[in-house]
Amino acid sequence: MSALGHVSLLGTSALLFEAPGETTLDAQRRIWSLAREAMAWPEVREAVPGMNNLMISLRRPPGAWAPLAERLRLAWDSVEPLPLEGRCIELPVTYGGDGGPHMADVIAYSGLTAEEVADIHSAPTYPVFALGSHPGYCYLGGMDPRIATPRRRTPVLSIPGGAVSIGGSQTGVSASAGPSGWNTIGSTDMTFFDVSRTPPALLQPGDSIRFRIRKVLP
């Protein structure tokens, strides 16, 4: 059964489908495809990809949710990957210092130096798996597990826009100031969301981000 993925409830507002196995770009391509398919179902208000998972929000809750859950699992089994390809943007990052207040936590957890964390973090080209969290924010795939660091015990009430952070095995860049449970290791400047633009979000799933080291501060 687990190969078909797992479906759980988010109250009566939404269902959450979680793909089985490791987090991979291949699985994410199937999630994009599943989202496209589920958007056409009449019960579905919006199909929202996450990291190898998919939330479907409901127009109104059906009398029973099991049939819809089953439909998601079966659709997952049959979808073809959707190979979205987009543009790549490069972001210069200042690692550590005032803009990276939780670098010490990542160093302590990983046993690496700040320079090593910055090198490892800036090495890959990160595909945008999904948007979420706040307007324009991108969830990125492909972070090196050596710098994975658990989310914070208590979320920070506000981190600034442009904060580069690590949460568990994921990384991303805040698009605006707000609360966050992730570990902020650096900062960059970029406007990821502008409601006067069409589309308002700078990046979409299939685009990618590269981080370049501007400097590493103690």
Binding site: L10, L54, G168, Q170
Partner: peptide, 17 residues
């Protein structure tokens, strides 16, 4: 440590604290 996923108003999260 979960993979990020969609949530809705009303979700009751329990951070590590």
């Amino acid at each position: 440590e979960l993979r990020s996923h969609g949530i809705v108003p009303g979700v009751i999260q329990v951070p590590h604290g």
